[in-house]
Design a binder for these strands. Structure first.
Lengths: 204, 204
DNA sequence: CGGGGAATGGACCTGTGGGTCCAGTCCGTG
DNA sequence: CACGGACTGGACCCACAGGTCCATTCCCCG
């Protein structure tokens, strides 16, 4: 990307990304212009294009990556070690807390529709996020199966996919309706399902 | 809204909405200007503002309503009478078929983020859609409980919420990853759960 | 300490696209 | 049939936001 970046340059670049992310979280992507970002981050137009030669699109993509990292980071350390029911419960709490706090805003969603889901860059960011997320969940299910807490007859990959879908949908419903009940119902039903499959044979 | 609309006027208005919807489905909201719509629907600028005095925003909102109606219509007649496992299976098929065909595009989603989720109009459209959707699902669960096919110990509202969340998330994952597996997993796991609760007492 | 590339400031350009306006045509109705 | 309001055509306006450019300053490195 950038040929050379001094320590000062790196700091400025990070300041821009963080400032842009904050601004977008507050006002949405569509209502955020380069001038808004410039003002908020105390930079000039030329700096924006110096660090993001691709202009607005490249900057938004960087913000998207920034936000994507936060999503997973906010679920740690539980998400990385779903090896007990306590960990799963803790993870559930973290997810609920995060989205309860976030409310109806959707940093990533708006960002990516703005950049255009078609562009390979946007694809990559979200695809990687979801892949990592799903992998962590699947690993958690497998771990629980190994520990004898979840029936080994269940397809871990399928369970993780369904759980992630429920979670995503719950967040989406929170955004559209403002109510947390969907996310709660999806998570609880999902966990209930895993728990229930702990001691009995799966239905054929 | 409009004071008087002759038959001709109504037809023109509908032509505009349908044309705009088609255009947006193909190219996305952001990449659709009033001039594009004007050209596609063989109308003039003044007509657009004649039928939608609120300008672009009002037009997009009308398109959103149009698309929202299609969403539910495409799931009929099954969604309206989820009174047997056959109906549920048929519904599942319709949903999968619809979104398989739709692919990664998301007519409503993009539309509403463009209008701005904050605006009361956008809120209303999506809230009504989701409410109707959820109500139909909940009614289906209750009907199955009445028929003795599903355990009456389940909270129908909660089951409907979880199912809808899974469905929405499945669609979202389809959009972001291009794979249908999530939607499939979410629907199947959800139905499996209802079926499994058919003959046994629920776990406390 | 001086040369050069990175970093910064800010004026300026420009295409785009939503929105306005008025003149002209159609058509139902008394 | 004429009158008024609905309907249509298209030229025009203009604010805005993304992007360009160049002059200037800073700071690392030899």
């Amino acid at each position: 990307m950038e040929r050379t970046l001094t320590a000062k340059g790196t700091a400025t670049r990070e300041r821009i990304v963080a400032g842009a992310a904050a601004r977008i979280r507050e006002h949405g992507v569509a209502a955020t212009t380069l001038d808004d970002i410039r003002e908020r981050t105390a930079t000039s137009k030329s700096q924006l294009f110096h660090y993001f030669p691709g202009g607005r699109e490249e900057l938004l993509l960087a913000v998207a990556r920034f936000e994507a990292d936060r999503v997973l980071a906010d679920q740690q350390p539980q998400l990385g070690a779903l090896t007990s029911w306590e960990a799963w419960e803790g993870w559930r709490e973290k997810v609920l807390a995060r989205y309860r706090a976030q409310g109806r805003a959707c940093p990533l969603g708006g960002l990516l529709t703005q950049v255009g889901r078609a562009t390979p860059g946007a694809q990559a960011v979200v695809a990687e996020l979801m892949a990592r997320w799903e992998a962590e969940l699947a690993a958690g299910v497998v771990a629980m199966q190994r520990g004898g807490f979840v029936d080994t007859g269940l397809d871990a990959a399928r369970e993780a996919a369904a759980l992630l879908a429920g979670l995503q949908g719950g967040v989406l419903m929170l955004i559209t309706t403002g109510r947390l009940t969907y996310l709660q119902a999806a998570l609880d039903v999902g966990l209930e399902r895993l728990r229930r499959a702990g001691g009995e044979r799966p239905v054929p």
